[in-house]
Design a protein around this nucleic acid. Structure first.
Lengths: 245, 245
DNA sequence: AGTGCCAGTATTGTCTACAATTCTGGATAC
DNA sequence: GTATCCAGAATTGTAGACAATACTGGCACT
């Protein structure tokens, strides 16, 4: 007999568990809070507070925090059996390592992209050129919609991943790359000013892929991220690091 | 007043929560089950069963599974709101990608190791030589303690990581590298037979680090893993893939 | 004043209960 | 004989309760 239905008659016995999407939601929302700086670097995380804020129980929040920890958004202040979660600080050193890793991951993807059949490579190169033209237009116009730039730049890089990476590499990229956004957002307005070098680096990437030169593609992607890091470094030096007291 | 103590008088009201180590334990034990093949590739995972087996509740098991999923030991048979967990299958394609990624991650670490000051590099080279000698001895003796070999080889590679990688890269390596063990273990006895090429590749790595040549170090590490993958491929072809129906 | 201890509080870690969803087997209709 | 649908079983997802540990601020003692 239909036992379950009865409970709906009792109305608000329990506040309707959002069955099946809470963990996902928690993960994305908390990540968003961190990336956008609403949860400031170095600050102290309390599960119950987040749970209240997201209108759910601690269970999914807790799981989400563990995932975020593994991806590097959150650090564990390790005591013997209890773990205190802290929003990962933004430091010059971390940025350097992060950008280097991303550069190599994308480099590997690019290497594989460059070994695809020529017709496929041409398609990809065409798409990449479009993205780069859009960037160039915004750069010329001096329009400071930084977020727009970021999205397009991201699309550029993602296109390369989608083309060349298998499931593993894709997953890896998906978990590392968003962390660059934390740095990008903080210093967005500054970075905009020297956008041009980046555009030329992109041209080099496109050209390398077109020619099917794996080594050159890999190298070009690494250089793009290395230089991005250098550009970032200047800004960090002015602003100071966040949450690294 | 001491309220808590009373509960112990009631004896087995609750079965004593192992406070503070369950998640960790779950993570490691389940990973071990998967790596050692006790949970066979492609097979179906039931949270409750694992929880019973590990003598704990579903909560930590569940979290552990999410972490393992993100690291690639487990994949999600994605239905709309429910996720069915499956032990990740072992395939030729996956092995290729995995080994390539590991090769590049270690390559990056090696690059950084190679740029360390000379005295430090000499220390490291000395340690690496020791490991390689141990491997050579075992190889000569024909002793088939495959697990011993694996441990030493792992130490060799880990030494490089510890020397050159920062926290992020270290974490990344720690999460990816153990997955190679799944492939290694399955085909261990075969791989043993052509161990010699690997030893020579190791020599090349050591030499490159000694000379402080970053490019050569990176390349040598990549080659070592690429060839490892090729050696593996031959065996997989004979044995067939596991769990990829 | 400085230092160590102790109670109360805050927070984390795990467990059980329950809701929601999917799966399975068989009974029924055609 | 085959297809469809439904009841019950199996399983996952979330909530809330409870236990254990870490932190805090004040108090006594020196």
């Amino acid at each position: 007999m239909a036992v379950h239905v009865a409970s709906s008659g009792k109305s608000s016995r329990r506040p309707k568990p959002e069955h099946g999407n809470s963990l996902r939601k928690a993960f994305h929302e908390i990540r968003e809070l961190i990336v956008h700086g609403r949860l400031s670097p170095g600050s102290w995380i309390v599960e119950a507070d987040l749970a209240r804020h997201l209108a759910m129980s601690r269970t999914p929040v807790r799981s989400a925090l563990h995932l975020l920890q593994r991806e590097g958004y959150v650090i564990e202040h390790t005591n013997v059996r209890k773990s205190r979660m802290v929003v990962a600080p933004l430091t010059q050193e971390d940025a350097t390592e992060l950008y280097q890793v991303i550069g190599h991951v994308e480099g590997l993807a690019g290497r594989r992209t460059a070994t695809l059949p020529k017709s496929r490579r041409n398609e990809i190169a065409a798409r990449l050129k479009q993205f780069n033209e859009q960037l160039r237009e915004i750069a010329e116009s001096g329009d400071s919609r930084a977020s727009g730039i970021f999205e397009i730049d991201r699309s550029f890089h993602r296109a390369i991943i989608e083309a060349g990476a298998g499931p593993r590499l894709t997953a890896l990229h998906k978990s590392i790359e968003p962390q660059a956004e934390r740095y990008w957002r903080l210093y967005a307005s500054w970075i905009m000013h020297d956008l041009h070098p980046s555009l030329e680096e992109h041209d080099e990437i496109i050209s390398a892929i077109s020619n099917g030169d794996a080594d050159r593609t890999e190298r070009a992607l690494q250089v793009n991220w290395e230089n991005g890091c250098a550009r970032l470094a200047k800004v960090i030096e002015i602003f100071g690091e966040r949450g690294s007291w």
